[in-house]
Design a protein around this nucleic acid. Sequence first.
DNA 1: TATTGTTATACTCTATAACTATA
DNA 2: TATAGTTATAGAGTATAACAATA
Lengths: 155, 155
Amino acid sequence: MASAVPQRSPAAPAAASPARDPAREAWRLFYELALANKPTVAAALVELDLSMTQAQALRALQPGTGRPMSELARHLMCDSSNVTGVVDRLEARGLLERGSVEHDRRVKALRLTAEGERLRSEVEARLSSPPAPIADLPAADRRALRDILRRALDR
Amino acid sequence: MASAVPQRSPAAPAAASPARDPAREAWRLFYELALANKPTVAAALVELDLSMTQAQALRALQPGTGRPMSELARHLMCDSSNVTGVVDRLEARGLLERGSVEHDRRVKALRLTAEGERLRSEVEARLSSPPAPIADLPAADRRALRDILRRALDR
DNA sequence: TATTGTTATACTCTATAACTATA
DNA sequence: TATAGTTATAGAGTATAACAATA
């Protein structure tokens, strides 16, 4: 439909043609892989009777240390009013407790129970295993992917 | 905390030590990048007054062609009963229409309106641009990332 | 009988606003 | 006054079950 000549923007920086920048297709594939993995994650969490948000909350709590609800809200990237409900449900299941903190009686320190720690490590084990498309790559690709993603996030 | 010797499973396939498989860290970084990008996507969609599910639904509808609700349900990976509500809201905004289909009066063919097509292309434009961490990689890395992800998904 | 889409119901996540108890 | 957490309220996504229309 457009001209047969590749489009070019006069002041283009690195890639001559943004539409043909390999980063564009890389991103599309990245997205595709993330979507394809969603059912696997969902199934794993259903088995543990956890929602995605609940799993994220458990992962945010380091075993053995307390953490204010406000920090959890920032980690979950949601309003603090939501955290009340999320924590309520986890506390009702005995996975964590609302403790208190010295010198400021307003803040509540969230702390995993023994059962919470157990379930948290179960979540970690299930979610940290790479899905087949990545696990089955040749060794050189697995290393290269790791190195490239490291560089991408080191900025 | 465990022994200083790397764990090994006697019948391990490719990687001698699963815990040190580069795919493991690659997957962690992959996840981290996806999470880091979430706020950007969310902000873009808020501007268009679309939820993630609604955006996915628009993207699933090819301009100019009708598509049964059952197919949309499969694409969104949810029960068909949910699609009713999602489509209701998009239809109320004039973004799509429920048409009918020859030879089977049960199925409803979803078809984008002109306004729906316009908004869909806006969504595409915003979501298909790679985020900074990927866009700013050196050209060789962008190409390598694309090629590795192609191989990962070609299976 | 089986399938497509809807309705009814219930639960979770999410945001905004108003409130409390502290600081 | 400002902050940490709660409550009230509303809307959206999701699942299950029961249903009507059609095949």
